[in-house]
Design a protein around this nucleic acid. Structure first.
Lengths: 337, 337
DNA sequence: TTGAAAGCGCTAACAG
DNA sequence: CTGTTAGCGCTTTCAA
């Protein structure tokens, strides 16, 4: 493991000059540069990251917080984010909060200890007042998840609109009693979707049926459970809004197994446009989220904050959602909202 | 951002003493310890990671290489590995090679530059001869993927056995013409599965039909494509072995759409026991892989190597696979192999 | 265009 | 039990 000193010695030059070559500084004669390069090559020299980090006060590592990677929405997000970070020569540390407040807080210490240059929060467990103090230690960017009164950059999707267009689509199919299904309780993402859902209902003069609201559905299993809860209802809805394609798939799968016909007995709309939507019969109507664009934007904003060293300013970047009509809601390819 | 120096000054003690309490060294009187703790608290002091890394020559970060996280097998692996690393106070950098040799090689420089303490390879793109030189710079552990002649720890699954039991199960259902499907070309995982597949055929006096072999199937879309290729065959197999549940699901979904009946027209077996196997009708027979146990073992071995500072020894840890019989292969719950 | 020297924040001999 | 001191490997004034 050779150091810059070894290279300097072999090249017969100073550490300074070698450093200049490493960092592509001007004012190094071509001849010396060549000597240095050769010495580096001969020794197989590579600069030590920790030393550079200490000296430069930056690690070129970014942490991203998600509840868990197995959730396909977050898998997709991590996949996109990793590509965006590696394209910009940053490394990505993945932190799973497991929906735990204390884990989230613990991971935030990565920022205090300067193990990472910044944190991208794609989920939020604690109240913002608990997170806010950490903004003193480095840039925090909210991505996907958001918080009205946070003074940080936020890259978000228009979830209210997403909830709205999906619901409006169901209403246009003639449904007047629509069930609601979401994951998470604290999440503003779910809250906004519900707002859009309610808004569409209201515009159509329909009411929200709290008995047909299921607020703890994240995956396929939950979807199956939701189906049974829904089927047991005295006053059953004829359509169901869900906050995730996996949940929609679970509902549909279990409904069919129980002899229901989709969409005639129950219309179902998913969310995320995952691969799974094209797997079942009927294929699932869903809302497409521009995850990749969002991830890239988040990374760009993050790196800009790191370089300017001024964080803590509220900036909002919003991306649109799009309804993808398939067969689980009737399949009459209506004009989009 | 206060330093150890600030704490020492405020406490009226030396940096050494402060360092000792940080690291829980013995030989610090309780009284001084308390003073230091108070000073640390008052300043909101946290030790700087880069400085510790430089001084201690370790970063407490581990890199894991996978092709991409969106593949559910690797999502699950990353999820388990992240939990294992965080439980051991290590951070995890995720590196997606995107099936690219050059990306893999580029990421390996993390080891040379000492940005990570070790690398867990869960996929392998380059010939081992290209990877081997990097073992000089830190521990490399093979997990899931493996390489016969590598002098590194390998945590692996018995893929030959996996291919064997799945195929034997199909044979026991009366199939005599079985198609073969896998992802990847270079991967030893696929090669071993094929060995198990062929072995089961051979024992039953059956032959491998190269026309019914599809070697580039990774996801649902590929599964759908495979179905059409298979359907177009002059001499169609009555059963299909696949290397991934997503592929099996794609095949089944498309087959049903085309009026085929599963398993009577085509029996299909998947691999990985993902959530998706319980979604389709029929539910998919598959092979369960102990991903979580494998991830934990890999992390333990990795940390042991880091602490002993002696790597480069061949050690093999193998975990068993298990056949999960469902309906896509006939559903007669036969005794396991 | 080059080099000497200081120092990023921390830990570990070594001496007391 | 506590402190002095010498670096870990690198970059950057500052001076030449």
């Amino acid at each position: 493991m050779s150091t810059i000193e070894d290279v300097a010695r072999l090249a017969g030059l100073s550490r300074t000059t070698v450093s200049r070559v490493i960092n592509n500084h001007p004012y190094v004669s071509d001849s010396k540069k060549k000597v240095v390069l050769e010495a580096m090559d001969e020794l197989g020299y590579v600069p030590n990251s920790s030393a550079r980090s200490l000296r430069n006060q930056k690690t070129e590592i970014i942490a991203v917080f998600i509840p868990r990677v197995l959730n396909p929405f977050f898998s997709q997000f991590i996949e996109s984010l990793e590509m965006a970070s590696s394209a910009r020569n940053y490394q990505l540390i993945v932190c799973q909060t497991q929906y735990s407040k204390s884990k989230e807080l613990t991971y935030l210490n990565l920022l205090k200890t300067k193990q990472v240059d910044g944190v991208i929060l794609a989920s939020l467990e604690n109240d913002w007042s608990k997170i806010e103090p950490f903004t003193d230690y480095g840039p925090i960017v909210l991505c996907n998840e958001f918080e009205e009164d946070a003074s940080v950059p936020m890259i978000r999707l228009d979830q209210t609109f997403g909830g709205y267009i999906a619901t409006k689509h169901l209403i246009e199919q003639g449904h007047t009693h629509i069930g609601y299904c979401c994951g998470g309780h604290r999440s503003n993402v779910a809250k906004e979707r519900e707002r859009g859902f309610r808004q569409a209902l209201m515009e159509a003069g329909l009411t929200f049926d709290e008995n047909a609201a299921f607020r703890n559905a994240f995956n396929i299993e939950d979807g199956k459970r939701v189906f049974h809860e829904l089927a047991a209802l005295e006053n059953r809805p004829s359509a169901l809004f869900t906050g995730a394609d996996e949940v929609a798939a679970g509902v549909i799968s279990e409904a069919k197994k129980n002899g229901w016909s989709i969409p005639s007995d129950l219309a179902v709309v998913g969310f995320d446009n995952q691969a799974i939507t094209e797997l079942l019969d009927p294929m699932i109507t869903t809302v497409q989220q521009p995850v990749c664009e969002m991830a890239q934007k988040a990374m760009d904003i993050m790196i800009e904050k790191i370089n300017r060293k001024s964080y803590a300013a509220r900036e909002v970047y919003q991306f649109p959602l799009k309804l993808i009509i398939r067969d689980s809601t009737g399949g009459k390819k209506l004009a989009n909202v």
